[in-house]
């Protein structure tokens, strides 16, 4: 049986199945990160003292990562715009750029983590580092997941374009919604963990 409403919108909601599906998934993601943000606030408010993030963490590297992730959001949305212009090769190029920028984010994150481990700063060292590693680690897994999805659409998944270009465009748009959400989470993580 074919999945209904992959290309045309349902008449009652005005949305495709994929669009409503990805938004419901993102709603669950808001609750996942929201629970951890609430935990962060509770831990911070209840702690007798809390270090300024910049005294423990590397602000220049995190700023660079913010720039990398924002740029990747632009390449992601440009991939969708290229498909809307019916230019598959450009869309694939932008998708690969997004994957590469995601990879750059992960490398910078790994450098940051490694610097902490070299100084024996593990999650068990303090409450601050425990919540820092939990939040940034979970976020990094999301970046990794997004990279896999985008690489699939830039590579083998792009075959769908030749049989059903609108469905493929919709899929890339939905992958983009996830990627932008990951960017959005980082936009809040950066000041909360590093600068406050």
């Amino acid at each position: 049986m074919e999945i209904p409403y992959t290309v045309e919108a349902r008449p009652d909601t005005g949305l495709t199945s994929g669009k409503i599906g990805i938004w419901l998934f993102l709603a669950s993601e808001v609750m996942l990160f929201g629970a951890l943000f609430a935990t962060y606030i509770m831990l911070r408010v209840g702690a007798p003292e809390w270090p300024a993030g910049a005294t423990v963490l590397n602000v220049p590297l995190a700023t660079l990562n913010t720039i990398v992730l924002i740029t990747s959001s632009v390449t992601m949305v440009m991939a969708w715009a290229s498909l809307m212009r019916r230019d598959l090769s450009k869309a694939r190029m932008f998708l690969w750029c997004t994957v590469a920028l995601g990879g750059a984010f992960m490398v910078i994150k790994a450098i940051e983590y490694n610097a902490k481990f070299e100084h024996h700063l593990y999650p068990s060292h303090s409450t601050f580092l425990a919540i820092y590693f939990t939040l940034t680690g979970l976020h990094a897994f999301h970046v990794l997941g997004g990279m896999v999805i985008n690489a699939y659409f830039a590579g083998p998944g792009s075959k769908l374009w030749h049989t059903n270009p609108q469905w493929f465009t919709n899929r890339v748009e939905h992958a983009g919604l996830f990627w932008h959400f990951v960017d959005l989470v980082w936009i809040f993580l950066f000041p909360v963990l590093y600068l406050l």
Binding site: G14, I20, W23, L24, S73, G176, H180
Partner: peptide, 22 residues
């Protein structure tokens, strides 16, 4: 990011309801 990259500025009403509930 939400309004322009995620196109929330021109999204369908049901998406707004889902987000409001969230």
């Amino acid at each position: 990011v939400a309004c322009f990259f995620m196109h929330l500025i021109s999204e369908r009403r049901l998406v707004y309801w889902v987000l409001l509930l969230t």
